[in-house]
Nucleic acid binder design. Sequence first.
DNA 1: CCTAAATGCTACAGCGACTATAGAATCAAG
DNA 2: CTTGATTCTATAGTCGCTGTAGCATTTAGG
Lengths: 146, 146
Amino acid sequence: MNQMSIGQLSKQAGVKVTTIRYYESIGLLAEPERSQSGRRLYGQKAVQTLSFVRHGRDLGFPMNVIKRLLNLQQDPDQNCESVNNIAQEQLEEVQKRLRQLRALEEELQRMIRTCKGGAVSDCKIISTLNDHGECLSDRHERVSPL
Amino acid sequence: MNQMSIGQLSKQAGVKVTTIRYYESIGLLAEPERSQSGRRLYGQKAVQTLSFVRHGRDLGFPMNVIKRLLNLQQDPDQNCESVNNIAQEQLEEVQKRLRQLRALEEELQRMIRTCKGGAVSDCKIISTLNDHGECLSDRHERVSPL
DNA sequence: CCTAAATGCTACAGCGACTATAGAATCAAG
DNA sequence: CTTGATTCTATAGTCGCTGTAGCATTTAGG
């Protein structure tokens, strides 16, 4: 009952087979037992770990943060504070990104609003991109993609 | 005056030297003239193009969209409508991402709010990641990182 | 029992948008 | 003339996977 194939694990955890093998390769998931023919056999714990990882990824946690959380989870006597700190950091990252995106939204809306049609040579969007490079730029950060 | 090195171009356009060479390698930037010793020599047009690209990237436009915009810009008689459409698409992408991030922000805040300290075994954040995998997950999309 | 489809295995290449490194040549300033 | 900065090419690495090739094994149907 508690021994399942990688395909079954994939379905239960909602993580693709190839991704599971990838997680194993980077040490995120422990190497499982193998059947006589060399196929991976997983127990219930793998489902839990994978669900944990997937949910963390859905929340936008990067891999290294998830690794940290997994380690903390392993050690149930540790104080909750460190976990809280990680979540707090993550929240701040999200809020920072939200601010960036809201600025971006406004600028795009402004570009679109001021464009009244006509030839590209008069296009406000193009000229915004050409000349108005100061309003979001000239930070020395590179903004992550969407 | 109008012939500058890649380093000068880098400073003027705010794009790193290596990135400029990379843009050339993917055909985003035309191959420039070379000095006798083989160094790249750029004119004012390169500054314009690079600023355009950088500002587009800052706005979150992916590379292929920027390529499209550059082509449109090249052709100044074309109607502005296609440019507007691209900007519109981009706005929608940004707004979609904003909705995702706001949901994420709420979930993180909820996690942090319900965590009152104590051992990891009782931690609401960990258990949220463990058990509560349905509220943002079970979409078949993978959310982009921050 | 036999076959065909599904699933599994390893190993490696590719994605996007760069960044970093190595090792050589050239240039500008003191 | 020397030193340090800049530039050159070429290649590998980043992240978080995904896709491919070419096998071996398992499972379901006839």
